[in-house]
Design a protein around this nucleic acid. Structure first.
Lengths: 153, 153
DNA sequence: ACAAAAGAGTACATAATCAGTACAGATTAG
DNA sequence: CTAATCTGTACTGATTATGTACTCTTTTGT
């Protein structure tokens, strides 16, 4: 099964909470109360999101996090990349495994690159705003998924 | 990280081997020798592929597996689904977790459905034939990724 | 200057999942 | 009936993710 981490799932919950309750600044503990998610976890997620510049952090007393982008401009690609790292698929695909001695199989090295690109662009078509809408109507905007796919065409 | 199991990776290696050495029938052990992959693993993969009707099995002595489709008609979607199960994303997305007591978070139940659909259609655009080509030229055919995405539009 | 509140960074134990293997059953050809 | 081959299940070890704890830094308010 293709899997996205639970943290990525939480991210959506957290971001949606932040976007609906439009306080400018929300602390991790406030978000934790609203979402019922454990605080350390919320804190971890928000830290990652801020590092990826999806949200902004303000330190010190009365500090907190705030959204810096419109939900329409936050793609799932950016969120997932922020939380789970770059979108890539096992083994050879991500460039790891230098000791790959399987001659024949690795003649196909890089074979998943196109698939990765396809997945990445697919995720770029879905924004946080889309995710919020889904609770009600089930319609997703689908710009051009095609463009990003060609390798060196 | 979005992850696809190693078995799915092996599948591509195995299928490519079967398509190039076009013997009509290949036993799991033959494929194992050619790919240098451990035999039990190969056997497991081929079993799953045959169950998904991507390849065909013939039992008994002198039996084996054979391709029943053109590489162009074997999509990565079908291969991954065969090996890793339906393309879906954690938790609520696949309909599991009936004891989901997180009130607020689950008001967003189904929020990943659109993402799943996007991923699925992206994978449908890549065929085994594309994967084989990738070793040399890096060009992927990209039919219409858009169509399958709309939910109930 | 100091204390309190909040984010940042690191590290770790547990739990879940996957990979790989092994073994026993079923099927077919000769 | 025997050898070769696929089918199905079950087990074990390793990897990975998760959730949590602890400590450090930053900033504000008094």
């Amino acid at each position: 099964m293709i899997k996205i981490s639970k943290l990525a799932d939480y991210s959506v919950v957290i971001l949606s909470t932040m976007s609906t309750h439009s306080h400018d600044l929300m602390s991790a503990s406030t978000v934790s109360e609203l979402t019922k998610l454990p605080e350390p976890t919320v804190s971890k997620v928000m830290k990652l999101l801020s590092k990826a510049q999806i949200i902004q952090s303000t330190r010190g007393i009365n500090g907190g996090y705030s959204l810096i982008k419109d939900p329409e401009k936050i793609t799932m690609e950016s969120v997932i990349t922020a939380i789970d790292g770059p979108i890539a698929i096992t083994a050879c695909a991500d460039g790891a495994e230098p000791d790959c001695s399987l001659s024949h199989s690795c003649s196909l090295r890089g074979r998943w690159d196109g698939v990765n690109a396809a997945l990445r662009s697919a995720l770029e078509t879905v924004t946080l705003a889309d995710m919020l809408k889904i609770g009600g109507a089930q319609t997703i905007k689908t710009h051009e998924t095609k463009d990003a796919i060609h390798g060196s065409h």
